[in-house]
């Protein structure tokens, strides 16, 4: 286990919603002032917990690491702070609030208090509805992505570009050698999808 993995594992044990400086405190043997005050960059600790849960439902730990293992909650927090314009930030926060409200309406409890299968059902329902709306859009411009799809996009991007995602779930070949154009799938390395750089909206 390298140091980065160690940090990620510790983060997982502590619930995932913890920032770099606080983590360093843990690793250095100090006690952070208050876990609840752990600095997030854009989202509150509670919001980050919910987002982390949605990310983990999207890509859970199986025999390979999951979203929380590779640090997706912190990744999303940083992306929201620096990569997204204000309109997207605002829509994300409002959508997050609405998503939690939906849980309360349906189950009289917030998303984080639901049973695991209830959470999955809520994420699935919201995702399917949002994708159906995107598919039905015939306008010239893409629809602004709602909370659930922005979370999905950032989760996929962060995970499949992470070392575990790229090397364990996908196939990573940093120095392929001369291009071979026609290779039976079974003979193309281990037959998995090759990981490549991907930075645009997808």
């Amino acid at each position: 286990m390298n140091r980065r993995e160690a940090i990620q594992r510790v983060a997982l044990l502590m619930g995932g919603a913890i920032s770099g400086p606080a983590l360093l405190g843990v690793l250095n043997g100090c006690t952070p002032k208050k876990a609840a005050e752990a600095k997030s960059l854009f989202l509150s600790g509670e919001q980050l917990s919910l987002v982390g849960e949605v990310a983990e439902i999207t890509i859970p730990r199986t025999d390979t690491p999951g979203a929380k293992d590779v640090g997706i909650p912190a990744f999303i927090d940083l992306m929201l702070k620096d990569v997204y314009p204000k309109a997207d930030q605002d829509r994300y926060l409002a959508g997050l609030e609405a998503f939690d409200s939906q849980a309360r309406q349906q189950h009289n409890r917030g998303f984080m208090q639901l049973e695991p299968e209830q959470r999955v059902a809520l994420v699935r329902g919201a995702t399917e509805a949002a994708l159906a709306a995107e598919a039905a859009n015939t306008g010239p411009a893409a629809l602004p992505r709602p909370f659930v799809l922005m979370t999905r996009e950032m989760t996929l991007l962060g995970f499949f570009l992470s070392q575990p995602g790229a090397t364990q779930v996908l196939q990573y070949n940093p120095m392929p050698g001369p291009f071979r154009g026609c290779v039976p799938l079974k003979e193309a390395g281990n037959g998995k999808t090759f990981a490549t750089e991907q930075v645009q909206r997808f």
């Binding site: 999207t58 390979t64 999955v120 994708l131 799809l149 499949f160 998995k192």
Partner: peptide
Amino acid sequence: LMNDPVLGEELKQKASEP
């Protein structure tokens, strides 16, 4: 898979297949 509502282990499996 952005446009496919698949979740969880099934998503990982699909991602690993070209």
